[in-house]
Simulated assay, not measured.
Amino acid sequence: MATFDYRSSKRRSADQGVPSRFSKENEALRSSARNVASPFTDEILNAPNPKKFSMPIFILFDGTTDPIDHIYHIQLKMALNTNNDSLMCKCFPTSLAGPALNWFKNLSQGSIASFQDLCDKFISQYYRNKHPAKDVSSLFAMKQHEDERLQAFLTRFNLVKSMVMECHPSTAVQAFKLAMNRGTPFYTSLVVNTSKTMDELNERAADFFCLKEEEAANSRKMSIISTKEKSKAKIRQK
């Protein structure tokens, strides 16, 4: 005989009122959202979104970093939807935080009619955060410190090179060679066989680092073996 579960019955009764309660709350949220002044035009707000679109996770911009880098980040995340102008606009505010989000909320209602309008206003607001472009002379001004390891210097050199707007591949390699400490094994290998591009140089450096790590590991093994042999020799002498 089936038994009556009072707790299950009570839970079902409570759940029956959930849909209506949530529908009222959702309608209230939708109503309040419609009343919020938006800087986007009605064409953008009313444009339909793709059916299978999933919102990417953006790095939040709080007003302290490069605005052009952030726009590039948005475009990378939205690579499959960059042609959907209204969607690009509606997703952009979700990448803002703190003062930057307040800036967006204070834009004039209906003042943005395209993603280009939004980018122009965004860059104009945070232009001072833009990384200053460097020229080739900044690469030739670099110098590896006496106590700076090759891997750390290569990372520092690549960072500066990424800020140089125009630089011939062989010019960057020449600047790196001039900046290196003389007499090191990697410098000697570059003199004997010069790389044509920084990509090729970075690959050679990666192989060089792996070789050095392997040599260091073998050296440690040999040291351990030598220590054990010396201990055995002492025991035999005793």
Rank of each mutant, 00 (worst) to 15 (best):
A2C: 03
A2L: 12
T3I: 12
D5M: 01
R7Q: 13
R7T: 10
S8I: 04
S8D: 12
S9Y: 13
K10R: 09
R11F: 08
R12K: 02
R12W: 10
S13T: 08
A14H: 01
A14G: 05
D15E: 09
D15K: 11
D15G: 05
Q16E: 09
Q16M: 12
Q16F: 15
G17A: 06
G17L: 03
G17N: 10
G17H: 06
V18F: 04
V18M: 02
P19A: 12
S20C: 02
S20Y: 09
R21T: 10
R21S: 08
F22V: 00
F22D: 04
S23G: 09
S23W: 03
K24L: 06
K24P: 00
E25H: 01
N26L: 13
N26R: 02
E27Y: 03
E27C: 04
E27H: 05
A28K: 07
L29P: 00
R30I: 07
R30Y: 12
R30C: 11
A33N: 13
V36Q: 15
A37M: 10
A37K: 13
A37R: 14
S38M: 07
F40H: 04
F40S: 06
F40R: 03
T41F: 12
D42I: 14
D42T: 15
E43H: 10
E43K: 08
E43V: 13
I44L: 13
L45A: 08
L45H: 01
L45T: 04
L45W: 08
N46T: 14
N46C: 04
N46E: 14
P48F: 06
P48M: 07
